[in-house]
Design a protein around this nucleic acid. Structure first.
Lengths: 134, 134
DNA sequence: CAGCATCCGCCACGATACTG
DNA sequence: CAGTATCGTGGCGGATGCTG
């Protein structure tokens, strides 16, 4: 969705690869964090705004609407004054939690190695002139 | 990487959440597809270009360089004329394959439900006037 | 064959202000 | 409290052309 889907048929295309379909859903800045905020059950709009550091009201609304459209999130409006709204994962949304947690686990375990690899790479491709400044 | 990392500390921030760290690596248009292309072992540049439908040379090079920098991919230059280059996953890169496959599996199993949910949502929020045209 | 250089359009995202 | 409306922008990604 994020990108135009004008791709022809092939063995690995954006249209028929399962990866792409998932990316179509979760590959943007805030989606996974918002889902993450709901992993323990119902949560109110304002509470999410506080828990997901750095997100703006605009992006939170936009993200949560998209997830609702995708059938991953439910929206419960509680008619009080002022109104409050609770969000939670649907059963379908819950099923996404498991694979996501494994990815998170991978990140926790391996990210330091990635950071090291980057440092090595950057050092190796640094000009000798720049190296002398260290 | 895709986005600026100017976020303060919090319980869910871009900097300390495992999800974000993984997204930092795989969340862009082509990365997962390129990794996918290497899941069965060595593969040459031109072969990837053909297998990953729709990717341009620029983006393939860019993606593969980033993965190399992250320590997930190895580059083997074979000194022939004209030169050929083989790419393959590193041991670290291989470890990412498992969680990625589960995500792909999730996509295969559940994507149709997502598509249905979207159709329902769009229909529900279509104006009655537009509905009459159906 | 396997790239790199350049130019450019587009849209995801951020900031700000207003509302029921 | 939980949103909408509007405007501005950075940089991702596409297209094209050139090299060793």
């Amino acid at each position: 969705m994020t990108y135009s889907s004008k791709t022809k048929q092939s063995d690995i295309s954006l249209s028929n690869c399962g990866y792409s379909k998932v990316l179509d859903i979760i590959s943007n800045k805030w989606t996974v964090l918002v889902i993450y905020a709901m992993e323990n059950g119902k949560i109110r709009y304002g509470e999410m705004l506080r828990r997901v550091e750095g997100i703006s009201k605009k992006m939170l609304t936009q993200t949560v609407r998209k997830l609702e459209r995708d059938g991953l999130v439910q929206r419960h409006i509680i008619p009080t004054v002022p109104p409050s709204v609770e969000y939670s994962l649907t059963p379908l949304g819950e099923t996404l939690l498991q694979p996501m947690k494994e990815l998170r686990q991978w990140g926790r375990v391996n990210y330091t190695q990635v950071v090291e690899a980057r440092a090595n790479y950057d050092f190796a491709y640094t000009t000798t002139e720049e190296k002398f400044r260290l």
